[in-house]
């Protein structure tokens, strides 16, 4: 089924979650993939929310905007009336918002902030910080107005694979510190959402050893925590360039001559060395692809976009992700 043919309000069958958590080793392009997914899921006149939690302002950078404040604001639209909003969650402000909701702090809250108390609280208990961040994400995911969901889907540009288990395992972190009270309740609610079919964690990787290893490790971690895995997204893949015939220098020289190119030693041996290096790289990539497939999770491959990431590139990736290209 094409995304545009779906009934409004229903989830996309290929991406059935409401909360899409996108992780991956640093440098694999998880922010780009998260943005493309948010765009893709907004197709068909829907509204999605793209969230970042690490204060990197990666979303703003990607869409060529100034730093995003702690507020949900439109960053992109789709031709069919869809809309992506973005939110950079700030742990301090999330805590104030949270305290205000429960305790009506007002000016006193601002004084606390000026005084560094909030920074203090979130520094001394990083687990608390994560509960606040994921709590805000949960709130946006489940928010309704007039009994209708405000967001068709929420896409979280999450911390990298090395930290994702700890970040999502909020109850374990807070259980150590807060044994009673609203924070405990909040972390339990977040944990329930994260372990439900409403959530899917997607792991972005490249066909390189370290990112693949971290993908394998992260999936094992998340499995052990009972957090549902969505897809393995293989980013920046290249179409194979070799048709399979093995090249040798003599044949290469004849080919160059036939094409009217120079056949000096340097050119021939240079091209030969390049082809051999390519083959080595390609074989390694193939074995890594097999390793990923053996995980048994659904896989999506995205092409390398050599021109860098602009809006057109994001649209291309979105179409690839949703299978609507």
């Amino acid at each position: 089924m094409r995304a545009s043919e779906q009934i409004p309000g229903q989830v996309n069958p290929a991406w059935p979650a409401r909360l899409h958590v996108v992780t991956g080793k640093g440098g694999t392009g998880k922010t780009t993939v998260a943005a493309a997914l948010a765009l893709g899921l907004a197709a068909g006149g829907r509204r999605t929310l793209l969230v970042e939690v690490e204060g990197r302002q990666g979303i703003a950078e990607l869409f060529g905007l100034g730093p995003l404040p702690y507020e949900e604001r439109r960053v992109a639209g789709t031709p069919d009336g869809g809309e992506v909003r973005a939110l950079a969650v700030d742990a301090e402000l999330a805590l104030l918002e949270y305290l205000d909701m429960f305790y009506k702090l007002g000016a006193a809250g601002r004084a606390l902030r000026k005084f560094g108390a909030i920074d203090f609280a979130t520094t001394i208990a990083p687990g608390l910080r994560d509960v606040l961040l994921t709590g805000k994400v949960k709130e946006a995911t489940t928010r309704t107005v007039d009994r209708r969901r405000v967001y068709h889907a929420v896409v979280l540009d999450a911390p990298p694979t090395g930290r994702i288990g700890r970040f999502l395992n909020v109850t374990a972190e807070t259980a150590r510190l807060a044994k009673v009270g609203p924070i405990k309740t909040q972390s339990e609610n977040v944990a329930t959402l994260l372990r439900s079919p409403m959530t899917a964690v997607h792991v972005v990787t490249l066909l390189e050893e370290m990112p693949v290893q971290e993908t394998v490790d992260a999936i094992a971690d998340l499995d052990a925590l009972g957090i549902p895995i969505g897809k393995v997204i293989v980013n920046a893949t290249r179409p194979p360039l070799l048709t399979g015939t093995k090249v040798n220098q003599a044949e290469l020289r004849r080919g160059l001559a036939a094409a009217g190119l120079a056949t000096d030693r340097a050119t021939v041996s240079g091209l030969y060395a390049e082809a051999k290096a390519y083959l080595t790289r390609h074989e390694l990539e193939e074995s890594l692809r097999v390793e990923l497939a053996e995980l048994g999770e659904p896989m999506v491959e995205l092409p390398l976009l050599p021109g860098g990431v602009d809006r057109a590139a994001l649209d291309t990736l979105a179409a690839e992700l949703l299978g609507t290209q």
Binding site: L241, T243, T245, E251, R254, E274, Y278
Partner: peptide, 21 residues
């Protein structure tokens, strides 16, 4: 050159190497 070789047939491996380059 790779495209030309492909059109004229033969030299498949040389065309590959040219594309890699």
């Amino acid at each position: 050159a790779a495209e030309e070789l492909e059109r004229s047939g033969g030299f498949g491996a040389a065309a590959d190497a040219l594309r890699v380059h």
